[in-house]
Write a protein that binds this DNA or RNA. Structure first.
Length: 241
DNA sequence: ATCGGTACCTGCACGC
DNA sequence: TGCGTGCAGGTACCGA
């Protein structure tokens, strides 16, 4: 592959050194690590991509206003596009500690480990689920959806939940992520996958951005509050404090 | 250890 | 039509 970086802000590290690191290398595998997309390169090295809020990896050669990186592959062009520039691209010989220090993956963590992680924290459940150093892979949409399905209030404290309720949250988290992945994710405004396909899980959201609308279970009005500066949606009846 | 606030960006919906 | 405001799939950093 060959890489061209057009925007310093979205590249972690030096543009020249990054391009040199990936030059001539082959993509051996593409894996997910929490919210990171990891391209494992041969004979060595990694290309890491975090989409942030509006990042997209596209198999599309058209360079547009927000095209920040262009990867020339043996069979086509892959580009990184990101209007808000909150995402990041990084080329490294080894995975950076910022990434390796994250918690276990939300879809791989065992029920018992998850119970221990959650009950060991005094912080609010919503903030806990968004903290990638506790469990990696959950974002704002899926935190709200998982808490709703588990019937847990976003302001509830991890340390005060019974084991049974945390186990229920573990199940809800896996269920939500598995369904969302099967639906190719949630396209809130313009998210598309590498083939340009929108996701459809937004059609299955039960609380996220449904404030003011009736709860699908009890009919009560869905509430919106701020927790750790993030919009948080829940049903005050199904998710009691 | 954890929290609240701020900062970083662009684009869109909305009210006036 | 334009302008101001608030909001958005996320993370990092600061001081408390």
């Amino acid at each position: 592959m060959n890489a061209e970086f057009r925007k310093a802000r979205v590249l972690v590290g030096d543009a020249e050194a990054s391009a040199e690191l990936v030059r001539g290398r082959v993509i051996e595998a593409v894996e997910r690590y929490g919210k990171f997309i990891v391209f494992r390169l041969a004979p060595s090295g990694y290309l890491l991509v975090h989409l942030g809020m509006t990042g997209k990896l596209l198999l599309d050669p058209t360079v547009r206003k927000h095209t920040h990186a262009i990867f020339t592959l043996s069979d086509g062009i892959l580009q990184y596009e990101d209007s808000r520039q909150f995402g990041r691209v990084e080329c490294r010989e080894v995975l950076p500690e910022r990434v390796t220090k994250l918690g276990p993956d939300a879809l791989a963590v065992s029920s018992e480990d998850f119970v221990a992680l959650v009950r060991g924290r005094k912080t609010r459940l919503k903030a806990l689920l968004l903290n990638q150093e506790i469990v990696r892979g959950m974002g704002n949409i899926y935190a709200d959806e998982a808490l709703f399905r588990a019937g847990i209030h976003p302001l509830a404290m991890g340390a005060r939940l019974t084991r049974a309720r945390v186990r229920k949250l573990w199940e809800a988290m896996r269920e939500v992520l598995t369904e969302a992945i099967a639906s190719k994710g949630s396209s809130i405004s313009d998210y598309v996958d590498a083939e340009g396909e929108r996701g459809s899980f937004q059609e299955s959201h039960r609380v996220y951005q449904r404030d003011g609308k009736p709860c699908v279970v009890c009919g009560a009005e869905i509430q919106r509050i701020l927790v750790a500066q993030r919009g948080t949606h829940f049903c005050g009846v199904c998710q009691r404090r």
